[in-house]
């Protein structure tokens, strides 16, 4: 596998915090997320529903609906500039051009009132100085690349005339039509048939390799991660609990949550005798969460300290990081316990 650490870092997310104001209180959807994306790298963001994967990526693009959402802290450095501090104009130049997105539900993500051609041509012409005709040719080319049959005719159709899988292909074609540096794919296959899913993933993989585009792939499917990603970040309750190169993660998972996730993937080779593993309980409500490891009620290896303070990050090696008390020394734990007691007083 290619070592991406030698490549240039193109996106650096540091301590990103996005909160939502709700009736019940402040919902900390993303609370201090940091990760790095190198050129051409595919990063997987894994976690259960509601753990903040999508919000992380919407925050990167500053697409979090506000109100009620607001990115309150952190940095998103792209090409040496903080996206969160950019002007509207600079931001528009990034969106769709340098970083583009494809969304979960292709049925609603395309504008049903505009022809595919209109939607694609406007994207191309927005970011590139080309004539309408050139843009159209380019669009047709992209559609051919993503495997739409007869793209010259199909381009003048409306979205509702396409099937779900075809629409996702159109979304991919549109997202890559400006050769973006980063493609954010937010569960791109969840809404599709199983048979289509693999095709779409293959397509993303092939095209991003071709254009040397980095991918942030959001998914809750570890199988997809294993097949696609160079690096994985596991998220739980708005934070990254473990991040590591894919192989290392599957071989040596460190966080009990990651272990649980891997164990709960059904395996075909055990002859179907074993019962499926599942992590018991539900993820917590992230409103007014006390300072503790949010996973502790479901954790099989929990200790006293887990209920008192959020664990710091430990570095197994340069690339493998985990946030769990299991890897803390006795001394550290005692100090933390004392501190927690002081705070309570």
């Amino acid at each position: 596998m290619k070592d991406f650490d030698k490549e240039k870092v193109i996106l650096n997310v540091e301590g990103l915090q996005t909160y939502f104001k709700t009736d019940a209180g402040i919902l900390k959807a993303v609370d201090g997320v940091s990760f790095v994306v190198h050129e051409g790298e595919t990063v997987g963001l894994v976690g259960e529903s509601g753990c903040g994967k999508s919000v992380t990526n919407l925050s990167i693009m500053r697409l979090v609906p506000s109100p009620p959402g607001k990115t309150v802290g952190g940095k998103v450095i792209f090409d040496g500039k903080d996206i969160l501090q950019m002007s509207e104009k600079e931001l528009r130049n990034i969106r769709g051009n340098k970083i583009s997105m494809i969304f979960q539900d292709p049925m609603t993500s395309l504008n049903p009132f505009l022809k595919i051609s209109t939607q694609m041509i406007e994207t191309i012409r927005l970011h590139q100085d080309v004539t309408k005709k050139e843009a159209r040719e380019k669009a047709v080319e992209m559609l051919r690349l993503v495997g739409i049959p007869k793209p010259e005719q199909r381009i003048d159709c409306y979205p509702h005339q396409f099937s779900g899988g075809m629409r996702q292909r159109v979304m991919i074609a549109m997202a890559l039509s400006c050769h973006a540096k980063i493609l954010i794919a937010d569960e791109p296959t969840t809404a599709l048939d199983v048979t289509i899913q693999a095709q779409i993933l293959e397509l993303i993989k092939a095209l991003t390799e071709k254009f040397n585009t980095a991918v942030i792939l959001i998914t809750h499917d570890l199988g997809v991660v294993a097949g696609m990603c160079d690096k994985v970040c596991v998220m739980y309750a708005g934070r990254i609990v473990e991040s590591s190169p894919t192989e290392d993660l599957f071989e040596h998972p460190m966080h009990p949550y990651t272990e649980g996730l891997i164990a709960s993937v059904p395996k075909l080779d055990d002859g179907g005798k074993e019962k499926l593993f599942s992590i018991e309980g539900q993820p917590p409500n992230v409103i007014d969460l006390p300072p503790c490891c949010p996973f502790h009620p479901r954790c099989r290896k929990k200790m006293g300290i887990c209920q008192a303070m959020y664990p710091p990050v430990y570095h197994k090696d340069e690339k493998h990081h985990v946030a769990c008390w299991l890897y803390a020394s006795k001394e550290e734990i005692d100090n933390a316990l004392k501190e927690a007691r002081d705070v309570r007083k």
Binding site: L63, I94, M101, F103, T108, E122
Partner: peptide, 23 residues
Amino acid sequence: LRSDYIRTAKAKGMKNSTIIFKH
């Protein structure tokens, strides 16, 4: 304006006025 396809349009980098009047 809350719908998915408007989010797509924003993610494509469209101007607000274009989003409102065209999309």
